[in-house]
Write a protein that binds this DNA or RNA. Structure first.
Ligand SMILES: [Mn+2]
Ligand SMILES: [Mn+2]
Ligand SMILES: [Zn+2]
Ligand SMILES: [Zn+2]
Lengths: 140, 140
DNA sequence: ATTTTAATTTAGAATGCTTCTAATCCATTG
DNA sequence: CAATGGATTAGAAGCATTCTAAATTAAAAT
């Protein structure tokens, strides 16, 4: 029964090595929470709470360090949904989001939603890094 | 020469009264900086600095209070461009933004840019409050 | 005009998220 | 099994923003 999990752990470890980071106990624990299973959107605090509950020995500082590092190497994407905290998305492919403002929760737009036409040229001296679309939702 | 300014002041005062707020020295001073002249995007800190330089007697707390109140009554719009600070837009009409990430500066998209097709339905129980598009720019 | 009233402003403290510091720990290499 | 350099950590610091409670002020009432 622990077999599949051990394999998943090995994959996670390889994933961390592949981007040039040491597979420490903390990084493996966090990466398991992030990358095994469906794609997800987390805040630093949520991930820290999950890690604590599931017995991954890690400090909040390391959660922040690890999230930044994972973003830097392209394992995670930071989603800008509001000024109060950062969200991290395990799906790094190009896609857009609903943001439930009453619950502080991100949700992917259904595929095929939103096609942007007439994208403007970048002002002189600048180049477009990316285009973020956030559909803000409130309770009906 | 002070004539036009006095008239503009009166308009600003009327604008403040019109939304049910008392036209105090601080609100009038801030509203003059915000609403006389072209549309603009400011942070609390920028507006506070401008007020101080131009002799408007106001505390940082009041700048924050006033920006929130102006948003609440529809004189300003808050633009969510990133997790580090809030931006306030004197143009409350529906439009989208460039965000110069190296300068922390907002700029309006040229009119006619971006038309969103296939906007998704809101998930059950939610309704769409608004759609924000931010085109993030870096130095070329 | 003076007094009364409630709204507004304010300095400074508090908050919440995030980053930094510098001491300790540990994965890796030889 | 050392040695070593990166990683982790507790706690402090940073920064934008909000809160508190006392002082001020605009507007209403006299
Ligand atoms: Mn903030
Ligand atoms: Mn923040
Ligand atoms: Zn997503
Ligand atoms: Zn704008």
């Amino acid at each position: 029964m622990g077999n599949k999990m051990v394999i998943a752990d090995k994959n996670v470890e390889l994933k961390i090595r592949a981007v040039g980071l040491k597979p420490t106990r903390q990084r493996i624990g966090l990466a398991r929470l992030l990358f095994i299973g469906c794609a997800r959107h987390v805040t630093a605090d949520e991930l820290f709470a999950e890690a604590s509950e599931s017995g991954v020995p890690v400090s909040l500082a390391t959660v922040y360090n690890t999230l930044r590092q994972f973003v830097d190497v392209g394992l995670l994407r930071e989603v800008l949904a509001g000024p109060e905290r950062s969200y991290f998305d395990t799906d790094v492919s190009h896609h857009h989001h609903f943001f439930h403002v009453d619950e502080n929760r991100l949700e992917d737009l259904p595929p095929g939603s939103i096609s942007i036409d007439d994208l403007p040229n970048a002002p002189a001296g600048s180049k477009i890094e990316r285009v973020d679309v956030v559909v803000r939702l409130t309770r009906k």
